[in-house]
């Protein structure tokens, strides 16, 4: 269908939740909603410039809006604070069932020590499921640069996890952790 309103409604119905989910992990709830709505208003105004697939473009617009919003003092901790704000008891239950190598709080603490760009590189890959070229488009860098960031982010996170005092359970692979094979 060539009708711009129909195209836009499709775009909104498919991607609003992803865009808001992205913003919710970077800004407080009310701000996140406004950012998501504003990102779609921009998409409407520039509908013919929206590429395919549209999600990286939309997340990039939201990212820019958030950058204007953001209090720079909070950078490092912002994501961890947002995760904490959105955490419910079910998350703890899930965590326990999955039998991770560290406690959830300790994992969050490790995350809080990472540079924000590293966390973002990982989030785009694991939470949003974006392949490197699309994640790079969101972050406004080359695919190569993104891959380097992602690699560095994983290394830093592994290191931070090992350094966490709560990492009491030694990393033993599957041995002694029956759930691990099923998880």
């Amino acid at each position: 269908m060539d009708d711009p309103r129909e195209r836009f409604t499709d775009l909104y119905d498919r991607h609003y939740r992803s865009v808001l989910g992205y913003a919710l992990l970077r800004a407080e709830h009310g701000v996140a909603e406004d950012v998501a709505s504003e990102a779609f208003l921009i998409a409407w105004r520039r509908l013919d410039e929206v590429p395919d697939p549209p999600l990286p473009w939309l997340l990039g617009v939201a990212r820019n809006l958030l950058a204007k919003q953001r209090d720079s003092r909070h950078r490092g901790k912002a994501l961890v604070d947002r995760i904490a704000a959105l955490t419910t008891p079910r998350d703890q239950v899930d965590w326990d069932v999955a039998d991770h190598v560290v406690d959830r709080e300790h994992a969050l603490a490790a995350l809080a020590r990472l540079p924000e760009r590293d966390v973002e590189a990982m989030a785009l890959a694991t939470w949003h499921g974006l392949p490197p070229d699309q994640a790079a488009a969101v972050m406004g860098c080359s695919t190569r640069t993104y891959n380097v960031r992602l690699h560095r982010a994983r290394r830093r996170l592994e290191k931070a996890l090992r350094a966490e005092p709560g990492a009491a359970r030694p990393y033993t692979g599957a041995v002694g952790h029956p759930f691990l094979e099923e998880a």
């Binding site: 909104y12 989910g21 919710l24 992990l25 208003l41 995760i83 959105l86 999955a98 995350l111 939470w127």
Partner: peptide
Amino acid sequence: TDRLFAALRPRALDEVAEEAYGRRRAGD
């Protein structure tokens, strides 16, 4: 590490997004 990172995503996020989607769609 990826699995652990993935598990840090709060489950409530999807419900919050779904609720906001229903509430804001018509206005947006």
